[in-house]
């Protein structure tokens, strides 16, 4: 892999061809906020919080660093007035749905976002897609998916698959920045296949205990200093 040198926030950073700007920055300990990114998953580019300013061939543009490939000689700015403004408004938009999500609260503080700027529509889900994509790309189960589009888009557990797969997995719960994935699952369970707890205690009273909840760390939430 060929070495590529680019400039991030005034620092010369070495990266390999095929890497994204986000990866190059992380490697150089330069923090870029993300919400929908997870290193085990294909880059998604949904939350847009990792947006940065890139100057390439004399042209300035705003790109999401989780998808933008490194190029020799490009100049990246991870903070600027415009970048900060974009992040601030994005956080404000998401806080209309999940005003108390810890990551959003942290980001709001950092970017001066007003959590009350937009009328509340507390759906709790920010549609980062971590649960959907993790279930698809890592677990290959597709027990949870997106339904609808645009402003009415939501995640939905598919009862037939969820009834079989979810209780013994639950890995997406801890990926969720708002805990909505867990709530959505439990609602699905209550509506579509209630009685799991009872069935479980009867059938498996002496067999396998309930699985321990495996915790998948969300990366790179790496706390800001």
């Amino acid at each position: 892999m060929s070495e590529i040198v680019l400039n991030i926030d005034g620092k010369e950073v070495a990266a390999s061809a095929g890497m994204t700007v986000l990866q190059a920055a992380q490697q150089a300990d330069i923090h870029i906020p993300t919400l929908c990114h997870h290193e085990k998953l294909e880059a998604y580019g949904g939350c847009r919080l990792c947006i940065v300013e890139v100057e390439a061939r004399g042209r300035k543009s705003y790109v999401v660093s989780c998808l933008y490939p490194v190029e020799p000689g490009i100049v990246v700015r991870t903070r600027s007035e415009k970048v900060d403004k974009i992040r601030k408004v994005l956080v404000e938009e998401l806080m209309a749905h999940a005003p108390d999500a810890p990551e959003l609260v942290r980001l709001a503080e950092e970017y001066g976002a007003d959590r009350h700027r937009f009328d509340k529509e507390t759906s709790f889900c920010v549609l980062c897609g971590l649960c959907v994509r993790y279930c698809d790309e890592v677990k290959h189960k597709n027990a949870v998916g997106f339904i609808e589009n645009g402003a009415v888009r939501e995640i939905s557990f598919i009862p037939e698959i969820a009834a079989k797969e979810c209780w013994s997995c639950q890995e997406c719960f801890t990926l969720c920045p708002t805990s909505y994935a867990q709530a959505a699952y439990l609602l699905t369970e209550a509506l579509a296949f209630p009685g799991r707890r009872e069935a479980h205690s009867h059938a498996h009273a002496h067999a396998t205990p309930e699985p321990e909840r495996r915790v998948i760390p969300i990366t790179p939430v790496a706390a800001t200093a």
């Binding site: 949904g46 408004v89 998401l94 589009n149 645009g150 402003a151 009415v152 888009r153």
Partner: peptide, 21 residues
């Protein structure tokens, strides 16, 4: 446009919704 957005990215999905409101 709000009805036609795919809903994948935040600025399009949320920004247009807020503009519409």
């Amino acid at each position: 446009l709000t009805k036609e957005s795919c809903g994948k990215c935040v600025p399009c999905r949320e920004g247009m919704q807020q503009m519409l409101q």
